[in-house]
Design a binder for these strands. Structure first.
Length: 498
RNA sequence: CGGGGUGUAGCGUAGCCCGGUUAUCGCGCCACGUUUGGGACGUGGAGGCCGCAGGUUCGAAUCCUGCCACCCCGACCA
């Protein structure tokens, strides 16, 4: 198992694991020296191709459910930002703020620039940590009547959260995400929307990324600032820590009231609209890596792989290469006809062994090698990334075999992660067991909780474990709180989390 | 911001305690040749304000002072 601690350490880490996994391959942190923007990441082309795959699928799902994309400004005037108090308070400590709009030559430091003290903004601009404020301020002008509702908007954007401590993929200072913002005429419709989007996230995580997730609602203290209810999907990483993979919030009428977004209902009465917001980010790429990958590098589910099959030619001379290339082109044509993405790695600057290793590091699901022996016998060597197995197969059934394997790899990755999670969910009755499971076995813990924030806080202080969620599908079961001994109606999901 | 630690080539490092030739080694990089079915080998080569500034000294990567940056732990967090 890869060393995730090293992997997800700060971007300038010098650890070998870090450079193997990120600096060399998927993303590169290439920041100006002594720069305060540490904690940002550069997503290299291969990594970005994975993100684009995720974007395309999510976008499809959003549009299928009636959402439209739009784009709102990066800057949020402070006065707008502070309008919804809880939201502002929740994010206040991690906001980057623009205060000036001009530089000038520094009289004390020839060749250097300084901020022009004369160019102070009348009002500071907050770089969006999330866009509720600016979007709701805009929605005010878009909604007058129930006929304008529901308003179902999504935005693909970057946001900035100036965290004290950053972690590659999981908590970068700037990250890419989508944020959905919707307005509805009724409370129940908004709640339905929030649940629907959480379902879409779960569906996407499980069926597209092959990451099993648990759906649930957050406790009050873990809830999004400004939300009435936060739905979430929680995943379990191979190192036994939990990761919040996506959230969907029912915002009540909080933002409508803060930004005065009213509409005339069918009876002609004025009412505030009901809101939701929901988002997933490049954090999902961290989840992907930490769910499936092994010591040899990434393992990509075929749905997410920038290319699903790579063909490597092995040759001693130009004639052989030409012959193999003809063969490879025929294979590519036939695979592409089945919507399988293929890359022919005909680089002359690398030897086959180096190519094999690189494709493993990049997680390409299937590799075909064609050499002189294959030319004679009409075969190819087929290697699976997930199981690291190889077999020599006849050319005849190649396309069928590959098609079948692609879907088998997708489902077997999910099954493997699901089995791992099943083995790492432990029901616990006593606080002693609670602590020992956290220490030795790790993973999720299902335990009774008395429902109070005090108990939640104390457990967190003592064990560092938090309530990840109250699972949606959990059955009611009477019991006593694992910490306080007070009565409880159902078990909640605890874990140490990223 | 509190506690601990580290800065030497693109990356990883030795040397520092106890000052003394041209700063060590591996990977990577470049050229040529031989190779090519799991990260090739040989020969040759390039690459260093030893974090920055000041001080001590005949002499500083090494000792002293200040500063800066980064890492780990804590508060914060998708």
């Amino acid at each position: 198992m890869p060393n995730y601690d090293n992997m997800s350490k700060n971007l300038t880490s010098r650890s070998e694991d870090y450079s193997k996994w990120y600096n060399e391959l998927v993303v590169k942190a290439d920041l100006a020296e002594n720069s305060a923007v540490r904690g940002c990441m550069v997503i290299k082309p291969y990594g970005y191709a994975i993100w684009e795959k995720m974007q395309a699928e999510l976008d499809r799902m959003f549009k299928e459910t009636g959402h439209q994309n739009a784009y709102f400004p990066l800057f949020v005037p402070k006065s707008l930002f502070e309008a919804e108090e809880k939201n502002a308070e929740g994010f206040a400590k991690e906001c980057a703020v623009v205060t000036h709009y001009r530089l000038q030559n520094d009289p004390d430091n020839p060749g250097k620039l300084r901020v022009d003290p004369e160019a102070k903004l009348e009002e500071e601009l907050v770089v969006r940590p999330t866009s509720e404020a600016i979007i709701w301020n805009t929605f005010k002008g878009w909604v007058q009547s129930y006929r304008d509702l529901p308003l179902l908007i999504n935005q693909w954007a970057n946001v900035v959260r100036w965290e004290m401590r950053t972690r590659l993929f999981l908590r970068t200072a700037e990250f890419l995400w989508q944020e959905g913002h919707t307005a509805h005429a009724t409370k129940s419709e908004a709640i339905t929307e929030a649940k629907l989007m959480n379902n879409i996230y779960a569906d996407f995580a499980e069926n597209f990324m092959a990451i099993p997730v648990i759906q649930g609602v957050k406790t009050e203290s873990e809830r999004f600032a400004g939300a009435e209810e936060t739905y979430c999907i929680e995943a379990l990483m191979q190192d036994g820590k939990a990761l919040q993979a996506g959230t969907s919030h029912f915002l009540g009428q909080n933002f409508a009231k803060a930004f005065d977004v009213k509409f005339a209902n069918s009876e002609g009465k004025q009412d505030y609209v009901w809101a939701t917001s929901w988002g997933v980010s490049t954090r999902l790429m961290g989840a992907l890596i930490m769910t499936h990958s092994d010591d040899k590098g990434l393992v990509l589910p075929p749905n997410l792989a920038p290319y699903q099959v790579v063909i490597v030619p092995i040759y001693r001379n130009e004639e052989q290469l030409a012959e193999i290339t003809t063969q490879a082109e025929a294979i590519m044509k036939s695979l592409r006809a089945q919507n399988i993405s293929v890359k022919y790695d005909h680089r002359t600057t690398q030897r086959p062994g180096a190519k094999f290793a690189q494709h493993e590091l990049q997680g390409v699901p299937l590799r075909l090698a064609i050499g002189p022996k294959d030319l004679e016998s009409g075969t190819v060597e087929l290697a699976r990334r997930d199981t690291l197995t190889k077999e020599v197969i006849a050319l005849e059934n190649l396309t069928d075999t590959v098609t079948a394997l692609i879907s088998e790899i997708q489902s077997s990755l999910f099954q493997k992660a699901l089995d791992f999670r099943a083995n790492h969910i432990t029901k616990v009755e006593t606080f002693e067991d609670f602590k020992s499971v956290l220490e030795t076995k790790t993973g999720f813990i299902l335990a009774h909780w008395d429902g109070s924030s005090e108990t939640e806080d104390k457990i967190k202080t003592i064990t560092k474990a938090t309530i990840r969620c109250i699972p949606i599908d959990s059955e009611l079961e009477t019991g006593v709180c694992v910490f306080s001994g007070k009565p409880s109606k159902q078990r909640v999901l605890f874990a140490k989390a990223y």
